[in-house]
Design a protein around this nucleic acid. Structure first.
Lengths: 240, 240
DNA sequence: CAAGTATGTGACAGTAATGTTACCGGGAAG
DNA sequence: CTTCCCGGTAACATTACTGTCACATACTTG
């Protein structure tokens, strides 16, 4: 079995992150950590954990909010979520499960219980979908490898910042479809983040610039990112 | 998008109403205001706002009471509600969400956050209704794809401006029927906008020109847009 | 045919949307 | 602590679209 599954731990308290992290390490899981909803969302988009352990109480944006957002976005909608909470209230529980959360664990919990629940959820999910996971995304001679976090054109490395990487990955996974700035913000940056929409234009510019780095290619890869006036941006291999 | 949505602001403090009102005005929303639950209810019935911003604490009838009432009445039950509150307590939040409230914003909040949340809720609500709305519209070898925001004739791209795109989409959805300029103005440009009716003729011209871009087709697609003298325009396939 | 009305067409200027550059502040790395 | 990198923003530059006009053409009516 995939005991080397990666779990993202989202909690604002470092102590909890550490305790849970150690528990899961001992159980043979890989762990990533995030202290707030924004970082969590970035990590999820970026690293595609196999499961998210999500605290109900998060500063600057509740966990339930993030859960809802993850469910809505088709890229992240199949990542299972287990909610962590100090509250034993049935109301919360019902609310959480309604949001598409896979399970609900109340603090305090025993390590053994937590691990058991994680395994149960993973088994259930894996049974549903035989997953070919982080495969390399490719368009013509452009390759993006989520695992090694690397982009190449005709086997030559393309330098870009983390945000441009996530943006490109998003586009590669959602080609031929126009997204307005609002959608891009929500899907690439994450929920509960409030930025100027023009920020996107700048990152689009940076991404196009990065793709133009590699000279002498048959295809102008920066042209694949198309502006659709008043509508947003689109990644399309149809241009000529 | 329809940024001309109308928002009803319900708060007993005039200062808050003003601040929020200005914020939403700047974001391009229309606003109505109410100082208490009764006025709010009247305004909602009367003007059918697209969304209600509702203060938690209201004199003579709490906001949550109003929210509950709105949900119960079938006429108002699908109007989204965002609760405003000075209380940061999670309990309130959970209770609010259980009452069918769509989102919950605690004071103090940044204008940007408020606007973003409103947009998110509106998008979610709008998405629910119009999901079969995104199918490809086709007439002979002319295709208009709302998702990729693209028009093709025999798989070749047709360039046109945003207004021409909307116009063509409108015609494809309403074929064989004559519309006068007034109707076209209202249905394509939107209500409460005043333009010279002749403006439409110009856009019709531009659309016809765009459709003539693609040469060598069996069908002259620009001919499908027909002038009906003294009556308006009609999109009809009965002529080719 | 002439006059009157409706629509086609090309050009123009204001403006909205996007492209581009530069700067600042925060956080990580050393 | 300093340095460097990066993300977000603002300011400026550029592009593309919109709406209107003026004139041309077509149709209608008497």
């Amino acid at each position: 079995m995939a005991e080397d599954s990666t779990i993202l731990i989202v909690d604002d308290e470092a102590a909890i992150r550490d305790v849970v992290g150690i528990t899961l390490d001992l159980a043979g899981f890989d762990t990533i950590k995030a202290a707030n909803a924004r970082d969590a969302h970035v990590s999820i988009i970026d690293q595609k954990p196999d499961l998210v352990l999500l605290d109900w109480m998060l500063p600057g944006g509740s966990g339930i909010e993030l859960a809802r957002r993850l469910r809505r976005d088709e890229v992240t909608s199949n990542i299972p979520i287990i909610m962590l909470s100090a509250k034993a209230s049935e109301d919360n529980k019902v609310q959480g499960l309604n949001e598409g959360v896979d399970d609900y664990v109340t603090k305090p919990f025993s390590p053994r219980e937590l691990v058991a629940r994680i395994k149960t959820v993973l088994r259930r999910v894996n049974a549903k979908q035989g997953d070919g996971h982080d495969s390399v995304l490719q368009v013509f001679d452009l390759q993006l490898d989520p695992t090694s976090h690397r982009v190449t054109i005709e086997d030559r490395a393309v330098e870009m910042g983390p945000t441009e990487f996530r943006l490109l990955k998003f586009f590669l996974q959602n080609q031929e479809k126009v997204f307005n700035r609002d959608q891009i913000l929500n899907l690439v940056w994450g929920a509960n983040i409030y930025l100027e929409e023009r920020t996107i234009d700048v990152h689009i510019r940076r991404l196009r610039k990065a793709l133009s780095q590699v000279k002498g290619t048959t295809i102008n890869y920066s042209k694949l990112i198309q502006t659709v006036r008043t509508a947003g941006y689109r990644f399309s291999i149809r241009s000529a």
